[in-house]
């Protein structure tokens, strides 16, 4: 690994730009993201910036129960995020469907079967510091080249 690659790898950890994706959430997890940018938790200290467009993002925060209609949107937005990228699943819903599991309009699968998830942040809703920890861990994975999409593309290049 030469010097420039090393600097870029460090920059990936120091500058994780996030993009929110509500896949059918009750809004509880999304409300817990806003305090991250407020004086109390101040995620900008870690270089976190909230961006509205997936084209500028490194980390996608996906919250909410997956519904039949949101599956396509998740795939579409995930595909728009430029590599290398990481996915953080917020709350219990993306993992299990939580209290909505079994409902006829809810996709009864984990988010992992739609897009590769790197960090799970459990809770209903998770506390802001837990979300911040999830972002920091995803940023570390980006530095190490160990997110699932990075591993996937490396495997593709080798074969």
């Amino acid at each position: 690994m030469n010097l420039i690659e090393r600097v870029i790898a460090i920059s990936r950890r120091r500058s994780p730009w996030i993009c929110r994706l509500n896949a059918g959430s009750c809004n509880g997890c999304d409300i817990e993201i806003t305090p991250l940018l407020s004086p109390r938790y101040d995620a900008e200290q870690l270089g976190v910036e909230l961006h509205g467009t997936p084209k500028h993002a490194d980390i996608v925060l996906i919250s909410g129960t997956l519904t039949l209609r949101s599956r396509e949107a998740i795939l579409d937005i995930y595909a728009q995020v430029p590599n290398p990228k990481a996915v953080v699943a917020l709350g219990s819903c993306p993992a299990s469907g939580n209290v909505f599991a079994g409902s006829p309009l809810v996709l009864s699968e984990s988010l992992d079967s739609v897009v590769p998830v790197d960090v799970w942040v459990p809770g209903c809703p998770p506390r802001p510091q837990a979300i911040l920890d999830g972002i920091a861990r995803a940023a570390k994975l980006l530095e190490d080249g160990a997110t699932k999409s990075q591993l996937e593309s490396r495997r593709g290049r080798l074969s």
């Binding site: 920059s11 990936r12 500058s15 101040d42 490194d58």
Partner: peptide
């Protein structure tokens, strides 16, 4: 001014280098 700590000194440099290392869509 907003009562936050704010970004580290090298933040704009890190942002630039990270964007250089990303894919262009």
């Amino acid at each position: 001014l907003q009562g936050r700590q704010g970004p580290p000194f090298f933040q704009p440099f890190f942002d630039f280098m990270k964007l250089l290392g990303k894919e262009t869509v």
